[in-house]
């Protein structure tokens, strides 16, 4: 069973978002990292880049495959997790903590309502 913290919101494309003070921290779910296998490379967006919800904002690559990352929310990229350049395995080991990908200054907090709750995300995984 993969971990799905109740306090986070999820995109159908397996990203999670945690909002604090108008800034969303974004990562990929435990389920997603497990399905990808050992990650060996993470390509992140540029700080300052303005993104819309659903935009492609990076790539995670495991030994076996590459998978696009989509921003679950709209806004400006204000920080990226530079530790992933040397330690992409953080995404495997601690997907909801040190394995976060980037932070977005939200343009519209109301967008969060478009994302899945933990229960809804669990239901999606169960139906896959």
């Amino acid at each position: 069973m993969s971990e799905i913290p109740a306090e986070l919101r999820y995109a159908a494309s397996h990203e999670w978002a945690k909002v604090e003070g108008g800034v969303a921290t974004v990562g990929i779910s435990d389920h997603a990292q497990d399905a990808m296998g050992d990650l060996v490379y993470v390509e992140l967006p540029e700080v300052g880049q303005v993104v819309a919800a659903g935009d492609e904002t990076g790539v995670v690559e495991s030994v076996k495959a590459a998978s696009d990352i989509y921003s679950p929310v709209s806004g400006e990229i204000v920080e990226i997790n530079e530790a992933l350049e040397d330690e992409p395995e953080l995404v495997n080991n601690v997907p909801y903590e040190g394995g976060w990908l980037f932070k977005v200054q939200l343009t519209d907090e109301g967008e969060l309502d478009n994302l899945l709750t933990a229960d809804q995300y669990q239901a999606q995984i169960d139906s896959e």
Partner: peptide, 8 residues
């Protein structure tokens, strides 16, 4: 199986 545990 693609992997039994960690592929690496």
């Amino acid at each position: 199986p693609i992997n039994y545990g960690s592929q690496i």
